[in-house]
Amino acid sequence: MLIYNDSIIYYCVCVAGKKGNVDLENDALVKVMKHQPSILQQMLATVLNTIMFEDCRNQWSMSRPLLPLILLNNEYFGQLRQQIISQQAPDKQGAMAQWFESLMEGIEPNLLTKNRDK
């Protein structure tokens, strides 16, 4: 399922995001995203919560769709980040905020392999 999610997200960013040869009006995925725009936000929240708060045995594979989801939902990611930080105990909020800063440090808004691996 995770590989499938990563493929969907990669498609959204790299294929449907280009307005070249792709007929966006007749693209099934674009139609679904127009009718349910919160799908990618829900996916971002789920992946992030799984990585952070659950017993995640393979964080690398869970992290694969994380960057594309953040790039597609940058504003929502900021809101989600603030929500997660505010839910922490006051003495842990600073550390959590620093963790989020470190997560995005040096990240560029693209899906190049070097950037995704970082």
Rank of each mutant, 00 (worst) to 15 (best):
residue 12 C to A: 13
residue 14 C to G: 14
residue 14 C to N: 15
residue 15 V to P: 08
residue 15 V to T: 13
residue 16 A to Q: 15
residue 16 A to P: 09
residue 17 G to F: 12
residue 19 K to M: 10
residue 21 N to V: 02
residue 23 D to K: 09
residue 23 D to T: 12
residue 23 D to C: 13
residue 25 E to V: 02
residue 25 E to D: 14
residue 26 N to Y: 00
residue 26 N to V: 04
residue 26 N to Q: 14
residue 26 N to L: 12
residue 27 D to H: 04
residue 29 L to G: 09
residue 30 V to I: 15
residue 30 V to G: 09
residue 30 V to F: 12
residue 31 K to T: 09
residue 31 K to P: 11
residue 32 V to K: 14
residue 32 V to M: 14
residue 32 V to E: 14
residue 33 M to N: 13
residue 34 K to W: 05
residue 35 H to W: 15
residue 35 H to M: 13
residue 36 Q to N: 00
residue 37 P to M: 02
residue 38 S to Q: 11
residue 38 S to R: 09
residue 38 S to I: 01
residue 38 S to P: 00
residue 39 I to D: 10
residue 39 I to H: 14
residue 40 L to C: 05
residue 40 L to A: 03
residue 40 L to H: 03
residue 41 Q to H: 12
residue 42 Q to L: 10
residue 42 Q to S: 03
residue 43 M to Y: 01
residue 44 L to W: 02
residue 44 L to G: 05
residue 44 L to I: 02
residue 46 T to K: 06
residue 46 T to I: 01
residue 47 V to F: 09
residue 47 V to L: 07
residue 48 L to E: 04
residue 48 L to K: 04
residue 48 L to S: 06
residue 49 N to M: 08
residue 49 N to T: 05
residue 50 T to G: 09
residue 52 M to D: 08
residue 52 M to S: 03
residue 52 M to T: 00
residue 52 M to L: 00
residue 54 E to H: 10
residue 55 D to Y: 11
residue 55 D to F: 09
residue 56 C to S: 06
residue 57 R to N: 10
residue 58 N to H: 08
residue 60 W to K: 11
residue 60 W to Q: 14
residue 62 M to E: 13
residue 62 M to R: 14
residue 64 R to P: 06
residue 64 R to I: 01
residue 65 P to V: 05
residue 65 P to T: 05
residue 67 L to H: 10
residue 68 P to G: 03
residue 68 P to Y: 03
residue 68 P to A: 02
residue 69 L to K: 07
residue 70 I to G: 03
residue 71 L to W: 06
residue 72 L to S: 08
residue 73 N to L: 05
residue 73 N to A: 07
residue 74 N to F: 15
residue 75 E to Y: 15
residue 76 Y to T: 03
residue 77 F to G: 03
residue 79 Q to G: 10
residue 80 L to Q: 05
residue 80 L to N: 05
residue 81 R to D: 03
residue 82 Q to C: 05
residue 83 Q to F: 00
residue 84 I to A: 01
residue 87 Q to D: 13
residue 87 Q to S: 10
residue 89 A to W: 07
residue 89 A to F: 08
residue 90 P to H: 02
residue 90 P to V: 01
residue 91 D to P: 11
residue 94 G to N: 12
residue 94 G to T: 00
residue 94 G to H: 09
